[in-house]
């Protein structure tokens, strides 16, 4: 009875695209990847640090003195480019792996993805604003859903588990505010 009333998980809009994997299967694949990262590198996954480092490098091109004098980002330039970092290479791999999968499943499609009643303009303004909030929060937490929520939680780290719980709390509480973007 319960299984009959369980609605179908969201699938790609494009009927030619392949269906997504079972989420538990994708989770196991991701978990094994994280385990390999720890065993080989001695560090977990990460995605927000490379974004911050790329931003620092971009600003450095126009205002090198200001960036090098900054208390938070200045140290990234001590050994040359902040992009010479293992997480920068990891995120380049993420782009390649994501593209390979999306391509094989015929899911590459240029679009501004949004709810049925949202304009392109509203969606992009929200993407910029949401990105800024997430970028700030990732530095404040010293990691994002990859570095803290996944990698830290798997190591039972207290701060990572608290961060993960807070993400879900913050998301559920604020979701009604952004209904217009998605519903």
């Amino acid at each position: 009875m319960t299984s009959q009333t369980l609605p179908e998980p969201l699938q790609p809009d494009d009927p030619k695209a392949a269906r997504y994997w079972n989420p538990y299967l994708a989770g196991i694949g991701l978990g094994v990847t994280l385990l390999v990262s720890y065993v080989v590198l001695g560090a977990g996954l990460g995605a927000s640090a490379p974004v911050a480092r790329a931003a620092a490098e971009a600003v450095h091109a126009v205002a090198p003195a200001a960036v090098e004098a900054n208390a938070y980002m200045g140290g990234w330039f001590d050994d040359g480019s902040p992009l010479a970092h293992y997480l920068v290479f990891m995120v380049l791999g993420v782009a390649l792996g994501g593209f390979i999968s999306a391509r094989l499943s015929r899911r590459v499609r240029p679009q501004v993805e949004r709810g049925p009643r949202a304009s392109v303009r509203l969606r992009l303004v929200m993407a910029l604003g949401g990105g800024a909030v997430v970028g700030f929060a990732s530095r404040l937490a010293a990691g994002c859903t990859s570095g803290q929520a996944l990698s830290g939680s798997a190591m039972l780290l207290t701060g990572s588990l608290a961060f993960t719980a807070a993400i879900f709390a913050g998301g559920f509480v604020s979701a009604p505010l952004f209904k217009k973007v998605w519903r």
Partner: peptide, 11 residues
Amino acid sequence: AGLLFGMGFVM
């Protein structure tokens, strides 16, 4: 940061 992140995620 987690609370902010969750808001930024849905936004």
